[in-house]
Design a protein around this nucleic acid. Structure first.
Lengths: 221, 221
DNA sequence: GTCTATAGCCTGATAGAC
DNA sequence: GTCTATCAGGCTATAGAC
């Protein structure tokens, strides 16, 4: 097959595709740094082109529109966030420990990728609606947390009420509350610094208070 | 009308001042509704002028710049929010009840004035820094909540650790978490509807779990 | 205080040569 | 895929007539 025209074309076309993918990633990297300086809504394709060293129309060879760039940022961000969340949960083992490790990793990622986190979880661009496909990692995240809650109940770390949507919403409120306050009031500080992010473990302890496990060994009552 | 020159000028100048103030308030009302439709960063003085029925340059007779409009919105919003918060707390009586009534009223106001709340508490406009004077109602809000916590401790509703900055931060994390999730995920729902805002009382109950009151020594009911 | 006119900037997006 | 050129429009803000 070596001298068939098809293969002769195939190899350089692979290279071209790879190079193209690299350019796409570079555009998204630059877009992220523009958002860091100008805010999520301050993203402009002209500015991206300027920093990439090309003319603005060239961007349109890679993305159909500004909203397409937002959608790619959303998709890439969602996937990256899910990856660190899942890795932290898996490393830590099941149940409550996995939940704690997951939200801690999630918080760290959000602080380190502030504008992306805002795009994902606060929706500051009114004209941007993420595509349905972009939302599948979000469903996966919910699934992981839901399973961790169920495991915690099964292991007797939490009461049966914790295996519920309500508990899931409580977790999301607590995590987004901590991160939101940190991003709004201490945007220059890292994870673990400042007045808010160190409070996350304490706040998650309240899950135990809200859904007290039945005493396995001799205890009160 | 009197024929003294002073009075002849004074009365119409009062009217003029009042009319001017009305126009300023109208501009801010319109600016708020523009933000409701276009997002906080979507505010444009041209659009405000269009809806007011004047040409864009006329706005500059009332505000020096776009940022001056943001600052006025911030100041007016801060004052309005403080007013409903303080009224709810005072009506309810001291201690934990005042705190609960206050955050409930605060949440209601934020949902009803979503873009203003975002401007006040999430800072989505990177180039806008509120003036120092605009921040004084915020300090007053902190003072009210801090006093409610102290009263709750004195009344034996909470343990002594609740009279602290930490407890204050926990309250702000919880409240902003509930409101932030509601605004991002259920922007069309009112207070008490949806998956998040009904959870606020339950989340504030955790203050009692985190700072348990001393059993018998103090705090008679 | 209102207007017209306009400066001077930015943007997203398209057409077409190379 | 890159470029030039351009469209079509937005914006903030100023100058000056009335």
């Amino acid at each position: 097959m070596g001298h068939l025209p098809g293969t002769q074309v195939a190899i350089p076309s692979d290279r071209r595709a790879r190079r193209r993918q690299e350019t796409i990633e570079e555009i998204l990297d630059i877009a992220e740094s523009v958002m860091t300086e100008a805010g999520v809504t301050g993203l402009s394709l002209s500015e991206v082109a300027r920093r990439l060293g090309v003319q603005p129309p060239s961007i349109y060879k890679y993305f159909d529109s500004l909203m397409a760039v937002y959608d790619a940022l959303f998709r890439r961000g969602q996937a990256a966030h899910l990856k660190v969340l899942a890795a932290a949960m898996e490393e830590q083992g099941p149940g409550l420990d996995a939940l704690l490790a997951g939200v801690e990793a999630s918080g760290q990622w959000c602080i380190a990728h502030a504008p992306l986190a805002q795009l994902l979880f606060w929706r500051p661009v009114p004209t941007f609606e993420p595509s349905a496909e972009s939302m599948t990692p979000s469903a996966e995240m919910v699934h992981l947390q839901r399973r961790a809650l169920a495991d915690a109940v099964a292991a007797g770390q939490l009461g049966p009420g914790a295996d519920s949507d309500e508990a899931l919403y409580l977790v999301s409120i607590i995590v987004s509350g901590v991160i939101g306050q940190a991003l709004a009031n201490e945007p220059h500080l890292g994870w673990g610094e400042g007045r808010f992010t160190p409070l996350l473990p304490k706040l998650l302890d309240v899950l135990v208070a809200l859904y007290p496990p039945r005493p396995a060994t001799a205890g009160r009552r």
